[in-house]
């Protein structure tokens, strides 16, 4: 069964923290996730466990119960969740132009591969020149 994007609830802030850990680490035990989350802010192990159980019920994460320590993984990849959030009407209409309202170190428009190659070359040359 593959739920459509609308079938899954949008993750809350706390849930997103846990999902972020699962996305970056891959499948993890609750202990691993707790270790990671407590680096952000001090959290009880049981709190994380409770959250992850709720998320499993919601379908945000899947639990693999074959091992002694249950292993959790995110049901959907980061890009999917990103699309889900970006699917919000306002974001769909104005998400693109929102870039003109924020300040960023990088342009809203992605650099082309040629441009990246050019920058790579510039950096290499600079490094050679200073050595």
């Amino acid at each position: 069964m593959h739920p459509k994007p609308t079938d899954l609830p949008r993750p809350t802030e706390a849930e997103l923290e846990i999902l972020a850990v699962l996305w970056s680490r891959g499948a993890s035990t609750v202990r691993d996730v707790h270790a990671e989350v407590s680096r952000r802010k001090p959290t009880q192990y049981t709190t994380v466990l409770k959250f992850m159980q709720i998320m499993a019920e919601k379908g945000l994460v899947r639990r693999d119960e074959r091992a002694r320590a249950h292993i959790y993984r995110a049901t959907r990849p980061q890009a999917w969740t990103q699309r889900q959030i970006a699917g919000d009407l306002l974001q769909r209409a104005f998400g693109g132009s929102a870039a003109s309202m924020v300040m960023g170190a990088l342009a809203a428009q992605k650099a082309s591969p040629q441009e990246l190659a050019e920058i790579r070359k510039l950096l290499d040359e600079y490094e050679k020149g200073t050595k």
Partner: peptide, 24 residues
Amino acid sequence: LYHLGSWMAAQRLRRMGTCLAPEM
């Protein structure tokens, strides 16, 4: 109107799908 929409979308970037960065 278009700018207003963009501004509102930008404001949402703060709240939607965000969490506080690690304490460090």
